[in-house]
Amino acid sequence: MRIKRTTWALPYFIFLLLFVALPLVMVLFYAFHGRDGGITLANFVRFFQTPEDLHTFVYSIEIALITTVLCLLLGYPAAWIMSNSNLSRSSITVMLFILPMWINMLIRTLATVALFDFLRAPLGEATLIFGMVYNFLPFMIYPIYNTLSKMNKSYIEAAQDLGANPVTVFTKVTVPLSMPGVLSGVLMVFMPTISTFAVAELLTMNKIKLFGTTIQENINNGMWNYGAALALIMLVIIGITMLFSDSEQEQANEAGGLI
């Protein structure tokens, strides 16, 4: 008997059902239920009435945005330089950028904390942002490097040929054509940074609280319904950023973006 291709998909389907769809349904269920079991919007109302949580939420988005912008400012030139250098040398450079990711993020972050300790740098917002950028920079560099290095060099020659000097070539051709990679990179950095909490806890000695920590605290303290509502709010924010870039997504895939 021939096994149909759909049969092979069955284990994945079960996996997705159990570990993606079901938890989402549960998040939805808890978020819209009170502790007494009735359907309610109280969890969301409570969020908007708790200044501390609202503040953490806005602050988390702020930190995520700052991290993303810094990663872009640092990552784009790095990706551009790598894509322009010759192949053997650039693959080593790419390796060097990717290498830290071979080590678990927590261990890396703990090492960073030890380093700051050694330097007697006070742990706070600055070290938090440093740690975030350090952790997520490769996610920005790689998709941009990917689109840049796959970009047909004849576009650049065509622009030169039509009278563009090196600066104009960069702004009018290289940057627009690398946008799919930039978008991929922005999403790859923004999405995890908005929900991260371990890096924040370790690098600030719990001095600074991010939204991820708020959710974790609530769930750990048995406030499942409120925690679920907060998680849902975060999902919606991430969903909005995805929607925002949805139209570009196809191009990103074609151009070799990472997502």
Partner: peptide, 10 residues
Amino acid sequence: NTVFQRYALF
């Protein structure tokens, strides 16, 4: 000005 083999239209 050049007309490229693969056109190279932006």
